[in-house]
Amino acid sequence: MQYNKRFSMEQKKAVWGWIFVAPSLLFFLVFSFYPIFNAIYMSFFKKNLLSLKPPEFVGWGNYVYLFHSKTFWQSVSNTAVFTIGTFIPLVVFSLMLAVFIVSRPRFQKFFQMALYSPAALSSVVAALIWLLIFDPRGLANQTLNTLMRTSGVNYHWLSSSSMLRLSTIIVYFWKYVGYFTVVFVAGIGGIPDYLHEAALIDGADSWKDFWHITFPLLKPTTLLVSVMVMIQCLKTFSTQYLFSTSGAPTRPIDVITLSIYNTAIKDHNIGRASAMSVLLFLVMLILTWLQLRIAKTEDVTYN
């Protein structure tokens, strides 16, 4: 009772609020904010992973090196090719599939489950399966030979650099197309029925209904998904890592995360790897900010 007199109910609650929030806050300070500031700091130093020498200040040296490095630009362009090559088909196909699935309500559940199932696999397993499919004697060559009416042609899925890039894109597309289809189905489900009913009464056919009702109302969802996919693609690592460790040439699929990993772990060059991390962070920062802004406007109701 003494306690109650000195502290009001509100003040007591404020203290509890802080107590509840504190553990997470502490965690984020130590494991998110400290490391990113540390990465920025280290990007101005020359530091070898294994040597005990203290880091040597080099100013913008690491950045200057990167801007003149062919390998770095190669990995930037690899990442860009992968991101653009993946996200456009991914968004277009998942939107299309979602619209089609919703138009088949009796089979909706089945199609959703079937398309989603690869997303339940880990990306390592996915890469492993596709490695066998892309084998010169594998299913990919067999299928393409049947489709193109050729026989016994090897399409070099894992050896020619453009095919190798395409292969990583296919793996990623395969794994996530169902996932984003489900996201779009949820978006379509959020459009109230009466809007479609009204369109139907006004004599719209399904084509018009899609272009005038579904698509405009899905625009925020589409934007959000696009940015989400872009962010994910920029971070791609597993497929490229596994393909390159199992014998495929690294250079055409040396994406930025793989490059950071190799610079730090194989070349022991912490400063340069940090500079690359910071540049990746800046790109992500812009995209995430965009995503959060879209997510905010996404909260519209359809009244």
């Binding site: 990465a39 962010i231 971070k235 991390s277 992500m284 900010w289």
Partner: peptide, 28 residues
């Protein structure tokens, strides 16, 4: 719970969404 700095704490936590793991793996 309502307490001083709640919004700041929330914003701070949300800001960590902009720090993908791939960019902090080396310091970690």
């Amino acid at each position: 719970f309502r307490f001083k700095g709640r919004n700041a704490v929330f914003m701070l936590i949300m800001a960590t969404m902009m720090i993908p793991f791939e960019t902090i793996m080396i310091p970690l």
